[in-house]
Design a protein around this nucleic acid. Structure first.
Lengths: 190, 190
DNA sequence: ACCTGAACACCGTTCAAGT
DNA sequence: ACCTGAACACCGTTCAAGT
């Protein structure tokens, strides 16, 4: 539906290229080694000096937030697409399952970034709010149809999903994760 | 009920004293600063050299596991005490709430230690198994009385509880944690 | 304006010397 | 048998010099 309204800061073409290379390397490192990414390795993989990484991402948090920005926008789009689905309950569950799959991909690092209090006004905070607003529509539809308890809060549900990923990182058993997810789904059911 | 059958390794009295001092300092550091304990600080607070800490706890994991051993034994005792309760469902919920409170105290570090795959045959692994066995009795009672779904697994439930603590560490709001806990409880209800 | 990497700081870990 | 802390290694972060 709506396209990503992320304001890209104006950068020289070569700087923009380095910026993107760093993000690609960071995402690869996160997918491979989880939360223990070594910034110097990320810079090396990206083919830039460590100073360049720091110039673009002054804090570790800045890098992590940007690394997860894209998939946050994607999850918002997915929620918006599911609004047209005739089955309110199934649409909500499908979206929550997507949340879990995305979080799993980024290991518990993705989950912790999503669960974290984001810097006020940061790109990720804006994107996360937009994503949650889109998810809220799915939730409210499922509440209106009587499928979900009225007092369920989307933030709580998302955190439960992220919590599953975090608690299972040391020994990720797909069957167990599925069962835990279903317990959460059962918990919000009216 | 049963007293802790932990086999204490034989140590010289002064070594035992250092061992205990290190654990006390480690627990204090964990309660204060969460997962980011600095081993050198722990050694200094304990009044021993860093080498002594490493002599007693060769790996970081060894120290963490020992730090949470005591409360694991306590949680086992609490489960055993609750077996006599006439209310099967209430007893189970009370015990799970205790789990969450204990995990909260140790921040997400405690939760992650509990959710982790423990070293085979370690003191913590043995204690964790005993604790879970005791909790299983509470769970099975609540299943026998028809309060809890038959296919619910204790490991899943404990991980969900630990997941709540982990996902909420960055911004621990007691009300939210309570609501999330109640969603999990609703999820296991028959 | 941006990039680089040497330099510094911090902390984890080991080990030779001491009791 | 145990303790100590200096020494080393690793990685995060800064900044002076260069393009």
């Amino acid at each position: 539906m709506s396209q990503a309204p992320v304001v890209k800061a104006l950068r020289r073409a070569d700087a923009q290229r380095n910026y993107d290379l760093i993000l690609v390397a960071a995402r690869a490192a996160i997918a491979e080694r989880g939360a223990h990414i070594v910034l110097e390795d990320v810079a090396r993989d990206a083919g830039v000096g460590i100073g360049t990484l720091y110039r673009h991402f002054p804090t570790r948090q800045d890098l992590l937030e940007e690394a997860f920005l894209e998939e946050t926008l994607l999850l918002r789009d997915r929620a918006e697409a599911l609004v047209d689905s005739p089955e309110a309950w199934e649409a909500l569950v499908a979206w929550l399952r997507l949340q879990m799959e995305f979080a799993s991909r980024g290991r518990s690092l993705g989950a912790s970034v999503m669960a974290a209090k984001h810097v006020e006004g940061s790109d990720l905070q804006v994107a996360y709010s937009a994503m949650r607003d889109a998810g809220d529509i799915l939730l409210h539809r499922a509440q209106a149809s009587g499928d979900v308890k009225d007092d369920v809060d989307m933030i709580d549900v998302l955190r439960l999903v992220y919590g599953i990923v975090m608690a299972c990182e040391q020994a990720p058993e797909p069957d167990r994760i599925t069962r835990m997810f279903e317990l959460v789904i059962a918990g919000i059911r009216a």
